[in-house]
Design a protein around this nucleic acid. Structure first.
Length: 500
RNA sequence: CGCGGGGUAGAGCAGUCCGGUAGCUCGUCAGGCUCAUAACCUGAAGGUCGGAGGUUCAAAUCCUUCCCCCGCAACCA
């Protein structure tokens, strides 16, 4: 247990762009980060956990206009929905940061100043659609029209540029030196290929609208939303104050991001940080995307999965479980309610729920208290060993964000425990050999406690229920190492009742 | 010749780096148990590992070539 740290570390979710409602993808990223944070905190680590909303940019300004309300009011309402989502998915203690907060304006402007050696004024040019009020990429321009059918014209505006081109080699060196910097590996390869193909300088300001953070000392220019957004992570740590803490936490920071925004995090953000002289994060993990019943989720098709509705329908813990058991974290997967129901029924109700029920109900039958007996035979010893090191086996997997693998470990023990019950036949021992019976039940209670601890980061409410049945405190993984003493158990209630 | 990922039992995937009787989950079929949420446990069937060629005593795994699917391709939340 020597590796346990007590220094600051940080886990982040992306800050979510408020132009749309929270959907399952947002919930997914948040829950992933939450699982990692909870695991580390149970391990005694001090973790800073941040999430929040990204609220600037012309799209938001236009949405507010369409909604007929002020942009500030629009942002407040939209951000609130994400705050509600954070609470609906049961995020553990965290900082919820909004890019429209004063602390963030200060932070972003201070950050900009640190970059000034790498910033120069130039002209940004491209095909501009006056009706859409935005630039259209050359590829999207067909017959002089934007995808929305508006005519486009070649425009130039004064813009600040960041000398990204100067960082190409330093970035490649960093990727080389820290192979764990970008995950999964396939994504890492993509990023490296992209950087090797050559980096151009980056336009980092706009002057055609004003819903953003003003560039310091430059009337009319506002920061490009990405530079604004990325800075949120250090704002949350207290930047521009508390620089020691900023560096310390960043050096131990994992950014959980969606694969669509990996480039910003794995290329632009590190380049900015290098320029600013701030420590780079330890790792950037890009998760995949969910399809819905095999189809891409899209608003126009109307098949977007609403996390609030899923929680209402199936419960939070089952949803949290499903999202990380069904696919390997980092890969794409398919969200199907049929599959979700199967997972609940087979994995949660039959395997886990029934194990807890059959053991604890049995103890109730015997009078409701566990008379411990650690005079184990080889069979109990085997199960006991598996129980004692479950968390140990999960830890390196969690460290690599292999959340799927960590759940597999827990289910391995669940399966072993169910098998153990069948093999040991406690219902027969109850009539023939009470000492052996107590050994069997003690081993089973140990395994149920271990399983509950292992699952705590994934299904905190479920773990709490089991601990309440067993009168286990459950505040820290260190508790797994303590033997039970004789204790009363409460009558269990099925954890995942069968429907109807 | 843009870059990358992938094509393995009905479905979803692991195994490919370091060649050596093809594994997991679900589904299907059969059996056992009765503590438990009709849950649990055991066993079986099912694959010429995308096609073709090559290296080798031996290839899903190495080499060559072809076919198919999916991402990314620059400032886009």
């Amino acid at each position: 247990m020597a590796w346990r740290k007590n220094c600051d570390s940080m886990i982040t979710t992306p800050i979510y762009y408020i132009n749309g409602d929270p959907h399952i993808g947002h919930a997914y990223a948040s829950i992933a980060a939450d699982i990692i944070v909870r695991f580390k905190r149970l391990d005694g680590e001090k973790v800073h956990f941040s999430t929040g909303t990204d609220e600037h940019g012309i799209k938001v300004a236009r949405s507010a206009e369409n909604a007929g309300i002020g942009v500030r009011e629009f942002s407040d309402q939209a951000s609130q929905k994400f705050r509600e989502m954070s609470s609906a998915v049961n995020l553990t203690d965290h900082d919820f940061i909004r890019t429209t907060e004063e602390r963030h304006r200060k932070s972003a402007q201070a950050f900009w100043k640190l970059l000034e050696n790498d910033i120069y004024k130039g002209a940004y040019s491209g095909w501009y659609s006056a009706r859409d009020e935005e630039y259209v990429t050359a590829e999207d321009v067909v017959d002089g029209k934007s995808p929305s059918g508006a005519t486009v014209e070649w425009m130039e505006e004064e813009s600040f540029f960041f000398r990204l081109s100067a960082y190409q080699n330093r970035l490649l060196e960093h990727y080389e030196k820290y192979p764990e910097f970008i995950a999964p590996i396939s994504r890492r390869n993509e990023v490296i290929a992209f950087v090797k193909s050559g980096l151009k300088d980056l336009s980092i300001s706009r002057n055609k609208f004003d819903w953003g953070i003003p560039v310091p000392d430059s009337e009319g220019h506002i920061m490009y939303v990405w530079i604004d957004a990325l800075v949120n992570y250090i704002t949350s740590l207290g930047f521009p104050n508390d620089l020691r803490r900023v560096s310390e936490a960043m050096s131990n920071c994992i950014h959980i991001v969606g694969k669509e925004i990996l480039r910003f995090h794995a290329v632009y953000w590190p380049a900015f940080l290098m320029s600013a002289g701030i420590t780079l994060p330890k790792r950037i993990f890009a998760h995949g995307w969910w399809t819905r019943d095999g189809q891409k989720m899209s608003k126009s098709v109307g098949n977007v999965v609403d996390p609030f509705a899923m929680i209402t329908e199936y419960g939070l813990d089952p949803l949290r479980y499903f999202l990380f058991r069904e696919i390997r974290f980092g890969e794409d997967g398919d969200f199907s309610e049929t599959t979700l129901r199967k997972r609940i029924s087979y994995d949660l109700a039959n395997d886990l729920g029934n194990l807890v029920q059959r053991v604890l109900a049995f103890i109730q039958k015997l009078g409701g208290s566990l008379t411990v007996n650690y005079d184990f035979s080889i069979k109990e010893k085997e199960l006991y060993a598996l129980s004692r090191n479950l968390v140990e086996r999960m830890r390196p997997l969690i460290e690599k964000q292999n959340l799927h693998g960590a759940l597999d470990c827990a289910w391995e023990l669940i399966a072993e425990s169910n098998k153990f019950v069948s093999d040991m036949k406690p219902w027969e021992l109850a009539k023939t050999d009470v000492a052996r019976l107590n050994c069997v039940l003690t081993a089973l209670c140990e395994s149920i406690r271990a399983i509950s601890f292992g699952l705590a980061p994934f299904m905190p409410d479920t773990t709490r229920k089991i601990f309440d049945f067993m009168n286990v405190d459950g505040k820290s993984f260190t508790e797994v190492e303590r033997d039970f003493t004789n204790q009363r158990c409460n009558p269990p209630v099925p954890l995942f009742p069968r429907e109807k």
